[in-house]
Amino acid sequence: MNLYLRYVKMVFRCQMQYRVSFLLTMLAQMLIPFSVFAGMLLLFQRFHLLGSWQVDEVMLCFAVIHMAFALSECFARGFDMFAQVVSQGEFDRILVRPRGTVLQVLGARFEFSRMGRLCLSVVVMGIAVSRLSIAWNPLKVLSLVLMVSCGTLVFAGIFMLAATLCFWTLQGLEVVNIFTDGGREMAQYPLDIYKKEITRFFTFVIPFGMVNYLPLRYLLDRPGSMAWHALLPLCATLFLVPCVLLWRFGVRRYQSAGS
């Protein structure tokens, strides 16, 4: 963990070398989710309701998933950019160092300009929370924190899966966007608006439902939600287990096949 923080500091200092370009990129990074957010608001302006959901409730949903995505894109960027890491021979370097590969790949890249999205989602969350009359209790606060942090881990797991794919092929990686960008766009709305199969897939296979939709129902005291739903995000982190195992398998394959 200590080493990880050192990596963060190092890359942060690197990126601070280009301050103007950094700020501009960050601004632009804020604009992209903002346009999506604006589209959502405009839809609500016309339709008023989405299923049984109010605009403020969906805003909270939006904020949680975008926050998780931004954090993950910022801190797990090494996996997101893994094709580049491999093709530049950096992975060989990682293998000749006496530390775990996961930690080192995480440390290889950080993209702080992605904080633009984070800023936007913080603002959106602030607005949503202030307008919703949630009966806050410690469990609910904990749940919200878990939603964001475990969501970050779920996205990181997907990035990791995509990176693992790089050990076999560099072609067709775009498919992974379905689960990263697609997952984000999908889970920014409450999952119950979709077809049942899709809701199930994004709850049990890739557990966006567990970090967002289900605990959100509890936060908002929706009928049928139970207190233990607040802790479902923890369950979602189990998703990382197969990701890490596959990653290990991929590394072994890299070691036996060469690049």
């Binding site: 050192r6 990596y7 190092m10 890359v11 200092r13 690197c14 990126q15 370097r93 006496p98």
Partner: peptide
């Protein structure tokens, strides 16, 4: 193996932590 945009000393310090 050095970090491109920061002084060499910083790279050394990070390597110290890695090893």
């Amino acid at each position: 193996q050095l970090w491109w945009d920061v002084p060499v000393q910083d790279s050394f310090d990070l390597l110290r932590d890695i090893y």
